[in-house]
Design a protein around this nucleic acid. Structure first.
Lengths: 259, 259
DNA sequence: CGCAGCGTTGAGGCCAATCAATCTCAGTGG
DNA sequence: CCACTGAGATTGATTGGCCTCAACGCTGCG
């Protein structure tokens, strides 16, 4: 079942905050795993199901969402390569559905194997726990943003996206992929697609961003961060795995750490 | 430092979802602990501090909140006896402040002792992890509620409060303490105190609730749950520790379980 | 008494939702 | 090559829910 190299991403992720021992590293790489490819829009797990595995994103973008009574959709979280979106499934059944926003590759890791890993290496359990807490911190930020204006919400979302892209090595901090359509962006920010459109035009008009197709460029980082009241502290980022040597003034170069 | 009996509440909480062994029970009860009394409004930890202990609520009500730029306050979570509000502090520094809503009693447990406990008893680490995931589930619900109307938000908040009160043995499911002022309720729901007032009058006018002073009575549970689109599944409640024998039709009697 | 905090009520304004049309553009098939 | 289709993006007009800014009543308290 296992293929070589696919779990390397998980090792790197956990190694960011906690220095892994050789034993721990081996244990992670030895986890049973199944690689799976998802088409854009494909659902990996539905609303009420009880999954028996966790999902590690290898490439592409996934999101967890919930469908409201009136048919609207709320996107709760966005997940990049290196993330484990359904980590909470280890201990809780969740009422969210997990779906691919773009064509994606994921690795499925059975729950029992992860439970054994946690029992054998308490430090790894702590590291995984920490990851789920980081998700919760993002959620808290989203609750706070729910009170702010549409401009702030959209700007904040874009800031967070860029910051996480950079931390994942998928962006230089100024330009990167923007995997959401305006409709999906509306589902994520709690706005209407119509209003998201107008808001994006605002931000474009003020020369804060460029956004066309699936590519986002931040023209004025301080300006955008100010509009979105964005303070990256809550993300707990530490270091971009592969940061270019180039450092422009406009590009964020946070090295927040804590714990 | 340690006093007998104070940690019993934590044992009961963790024992709800995971059957504890005698060893585990002893280990918890043997944790070093300091009892502290808080006045209403008193802050236990401020915004940027790095606390060195976790807090177990013995009696009273606490909340975690954040102050926004414009001076407004956002209440992120409400905590009842048996809760550990700052459990995430074990692995992450958080930018929230923890304060008492009413006169309260808490127990402080040093982080190092909890880390040792987790290392020695992986099952307990899992149980604590689970608790923090339950907090995250409540947060997710709050994000979703951010899109709904003021009526729905307030109704939902009251439903959640009653459900958690009952699970903590502080309510029979129909009547219970309501520790928030209208201003604080506004901070929690993301509304204005003015609009909260009008909304409460709505709910009162429709004979859904009675609310005066610090006492809340739910007159029409199905009605209130419908207005708030409240589905208690996400709370993951299992059983009220001390539920009265009396069971009226209007009272909720969920026994949701999962995991 | 005077004060402060909370609850209540009224009038007016604004942001974002709603409804609805148009436009672009890629894909598809005749 | 072009008509057709459907999804996403864009624009305009209107509505409505909630905020803002006031003012006033109530209660407990120094």
């Amino acid at each position: 079942v296992s293929r070589s190299g696919t779990l390397e991403l998980l090792v790197r992720k956990l190694d960011t905050h906690l220095r892994l021992s050789a034993d721990e590293r081996r244990a992670i790489l030895g986890l049973p795993s199944t690689v799976r490819t998802l088409q854009a829009g494909q659902e990996l797990s539905r609303d009420g199901e009880q999954p028996s595995h966790c999902t590690l994103v290898l490439s592409g973008f996934l999101c967890r969402s919930r469908t409201l009574l009136e048919g609207k959709r709320q996107i709760l979280s966005l997940h990049l390569p290196g993330d484990v979106p359904d980590l909470d499934g280890l201990h809780l059944k969740s009422d969210l559905s997990l779906a691919a926003l773009t064509r994606s590759e994921v690795v499925l890791i059975p729950h029992p194997a992860l439970h054994e890993l946690c029992a054998k290496f308490p430090a790894l359990a702590g590291a995984l726990w920490r990851e789920s807490l980081a998700d919760a911190a993002i959620l808290r930020e989203r609750v706070v943003m729910g009170r702010r204006s549409a401009r702030a919400r959209v700007a904040h979302f874009l800031c967070e996206l860029m910051a996480r892209l950079q931390a994942a090595g998928l962006s230089d901090g100024r330009t990167g992929p923007m995997p959401l359509s305006q409709i999906e962006l509306a589902d994520a920010t709690g706005l209407t697609n119509v209003h998201v459109n107008r808001t994006l035009q605002d931000l474009r008009g003020e020369k804060l961003i460029m956004l066309s197709g699936a590519k986002l460029t931040v023209l004025d980082w301080p300006g955008l961060a100010k509009v979105g009241e964005f303070d990256p502290t809550y993300l707990g980022l530490r270091r971009a795995p592969s940061s270019g040597p180039e450092e422009r003034d406009a590009a964020p170069r946070w090295t927040v750490s804590h714990g």
